[in-house]
Amino acid sequence: MRRLSAYLAAIVAGCALGLGSALWMAGLWPAGRSLAFGDVDVDGWRSDFAIGSKTADPYTRARVARHGLLALAKTEAVYLTRALDDAGEPLREACAYRLSGGTMPAGWWSVTLYDSASMLPANTDGALSIDASRAGAGRWEAVIAARRPERAAHWVSSRGAGTFDLTLRLYMPNAALLTDPNGTLDAPRIARLSCEGAS
């Protein structure tokens, strides 16, 4: 009887361990884990260029199914995500940031803010992203903050986002970006300007 109990306990524990370890390694559990994954890291902007394709490893496939369902393969669009500012601190609603960048190696680009559930933050500010058509040619800047800044050409609202991340979309990417992302992409910078409650 004790032997049978030992086997039963081993089977139950093994199934729980296997399930939990798979979900943890794929970034699906516990909820709200960082999206820091992938084989590409350009100044903290991370991606897996196998997104959307059968060549993605099973962990990437599971994670993308949850966090990037219906994402395109890299020849059509590249998605990079960043959850930390330039100082390495998590991006959060209580702080204001300056997002800045230059010309992108793609036909069209955008930077969009998502909350920890990978959804657009529940606000009605109509300031969810900045894209190539609004930023114009050359260098560009936007302020990320929970309230509209008095002086800023572009604003991305973090109101209601809590801890958030940014996704950089690069549609119709240049071939060089796919082969040498670090040498090709001048990744946007995220400088923290201030935080509520900070002295």
Partner: peptide, 8 residues
Amino acid sequence: LCTAAAHV
């Protein structure tokens, strides 16, 4: 075995 199987 169960851990590996459940993981995969």
